[in-house]
């Protein structure tokens, strides 16, 4: 308990809130790595997920692959990629992409699948092309589920990005690893609190976004 209090007083120290190794810098780095990981993963996963959802083909394969990907330990991946790509950002970002893909993929195909087939049939009967059906009917109606896929991916990645510091990067993991090695547990705990707080804030913000973007009649996420 006293360590928790010490962690908060560590956080309250104004000198930690400035400078190149201060909390704001580390926080921004942390967000930047998260954004990189999720965006790259989205570029790969969302089109595939939408395609799978729209055509109904390859669903079994995608489910199996993303299930398997979820089981990979991220620190193990970072070390493996690190030995291949060297220290720096590439290895951890690659690992975060692997981490984020399953949630994004699941969000994308379930978004499309959640749309009432009668609605899709109606759109087709009106002469919409398949692309129009996807982009004007399925995606808007499934948007909350798509965003909830993003939400899950972002929360997962933001909580894992601390591992980037294992291999020569910045981010909030710096405080955690340094505290751990120096047995400076208040510092480690403070770093963890920041990561948890960041994950919670992002989670809530994205939930609000899900609500706001849901069109009338859309599936609830």
């Amino acid at each position: 308990m006293s360590q928790l209090l010490e962690a908060f007083s560590w956080l309250a120290d104004p000198t930690r809130w400035s400078g190149t190794d201060g909390i704001p810098t580390r926080l921004l780095e942390h967000l930047w790595y998260t954004a990189l990981g999720v965006v790259v993963a989205a570029v790969i996963a969302v089109p595939i997920g939408l395609l799978v959802g729209h055509t109904g083909r390859g669903r079994g394969l995608v489910v199996a692959l993303s299930g398997a990907a979820r089981a990979l330990p991220t620190l193990g991946l970072i070390t493996l990629f690190g030995l291949w790509l060297g220290i720096g950002l590439k290895a951890p970002i690659l690992a975060f992409v692997v981490l984020a893909i399953p949630s994004l993929l699941a969000g994308a195909y379930s978004a499309v699948e959640s749309v009432d087939p009668r609605t899709v049939d109606a759109a087709r009967a009106q002469g919409m092309t398949e692309w129009q059906i996807l982009s004007r009917v399925e995606v808007p109606l499934g948007l909350p589920l798509l965003i909830s896929g993003f939400r899950l991916a972002i929360v997962q990645v933001v909580a894992t990005v601390m591992l980037a510091s294992y291999i020569g990067n910045g981010g909030l993991g710096r405080f955690i690893f340094l505290g751990l090695q120096l047995q400076d547990y208040p510092q480690m705990l403070a770093g963890s609190i920041l990561v948890v707080a960041l994950a919670l804030v992002l989670d809530v913000a994205l939930r609000v976004l899900e609500r706001l973007l849901a069109p009338r009649g859309a599936a609830r996420g």
Partner: peptide, 23 residues
Amino acid sequence: TTTGPVVGRRSLAALAGTGIVAL
């Protein structure tokens, strides 16, 4: 001493734990 109670997300702690042990 390392991962358990430290990181908020249990799944992350478990992942990190496995990785560390493996290393």
